[in-house]
């Protein structure tokens, strides 16, 4: 990264004590409220700590217990399903929208403002909006489907074993499409039009252009969006808490909800921290594999 590059300038050529003074608040805050808690959190994952009790190190006991914990595996499974599907839908639908908006047509500014609205909606409100959409007797979803003749009896979306997962996924994707679209649109706008003009002269079609110009040039932005949204989605809490609180029967209990319940509802702090550690390892592995694939592809091309 270029901040490491050394530049000699007369005004700042000599090291000044001023830097430490200016950076002191950041270093203090980050150490006390971010670095220390994180390291401490990792450590607590290897203890049997309960709020108020003494802390005692218990090695890998928590992980042995997690390995046999059916609830944890269910939560991990639904966490993966949720993260993969929401990320895939969010990025692909967002890319579609970005491609549409990246045209010189009327009302683009207005469209962009309207599209921002779900992103601007706080996660808790997103949950409330969709609860009201899914309301069995007075919600828009059932009314619409009944009017279209697709269902005959109202469905209780958020308490049904059959429908709850697709229902929360739709609500989750809804709030996140805009974010992906706006970032990808900014990426698309950096692509020079000359590339397309040249390829058009060579007789390239829409699909050729997308595949051979747009995707390769967009790749760094796309990779950043995919990794970030993957992490964010894996850590979802608020919207699910409002929609289902993890129910029915734990079907939508994402890993964050599981960790929250273990730690703050039942007080098993050490065990909750262990869930957190497992989440870090899973995320790091996923990102590592993803970055490796990206790098290999870049080398080949």
């Amino acid at each position: 990264m270029d901040f490491i590059k050394k530049k000699k300038h007369t005004l700042y050529s000599k090291k000044e004590i001023g830097q430490i003074q200016l950076l002191f608040p950041v270093i203090l805050l980050v150490s006390v409220f971010s670095l220390f808690p994180l390291l401490r959190g990792i450590y607590l994952g290897f203890t049997d700590y309960r709020l108020g009790d003494a802390i005692s190190f218990n090695g890998f006991d928590n992980y042995a217990q997690l390995f046999n914990d059916e609830y944890f595996w269910d939560s991990f499974k639904i966490g993966m399903i949720w993260t993969f599907i929401v990320t895939a839908l969010q990025v692909s639908l967002g890319l579609g929208l970005a491609l549409l908006l990246n045209n010189k047509i009327k009302f683009v500014a207005l469209y962009t403002v309207l599209i921002l609205i779900p992103w601007a909606t706080p996660p808790i409100i997103r949950g409330i909006l969709w609860r009201q959409m899914y309301e069995p007797n007075a919600g828009a979803v059932n009314i619409l489907l009944t009017d279209l003749g697709l269902i005959t009896a109202p469905i209780n979306w958020l308490t049904s074993f059959e429908y709850v997962i697709p229902a929360v996924i739709v609500a989750g994707v809804w709030g996140e499409i805009s974010k992906a679209a706006i970032f990808l649109l900014a990426g698309l706008q950096t692509i020079s039009n000359d590339l397309y003009e040249a390829s058009k002269i060579d007789g390239a079609g829409l699909w050729d252009q997308f595949w051979h110009i747009t995707l390769p040039v967009l790749k760094p932005v796309l990779a950043a969006i995919v990794s970030l949204t993957f992490m964010w989605n894996f850590n979802t809490f608020g919207i699910i808490w409002v929609l289902t609180q993890g129910g029915p029967g734990g079907m939508t209990r994402l890993p964050m909800l599981a960790a929250y319940e273990e730690g703050f509802r039942y007080g098993y702090i050490g065990y909750a921290a262990a869930i957190g550690n497992v989440m870090v390892i899973i995320l790091s592995l996923m990102l590592f594999m993803y970055i490796r694939v990206q790098l290999r592809e870049r080398k080949e091309s």
Binding site: F3, K7, V30, G45, L228, M256, A273, M279, V280
Partner: peptide, 28 residues
């Protein structure tokens, strides 16, 4: 003022994004 602290802080900003809030929240 370029120094090693900068790379440390910027590196930390990126790395800290991976950790789930729950892990920070408990000790915090």
């Amino acid at each position: 003022y370029k120094s090693i602290i900068n790379s440390g802080i910027l590196g930390w900003i990126l790395v800290s994004q991976i950790f789930p809030v729950i892990l920070v929240m408990i000790p915090l």
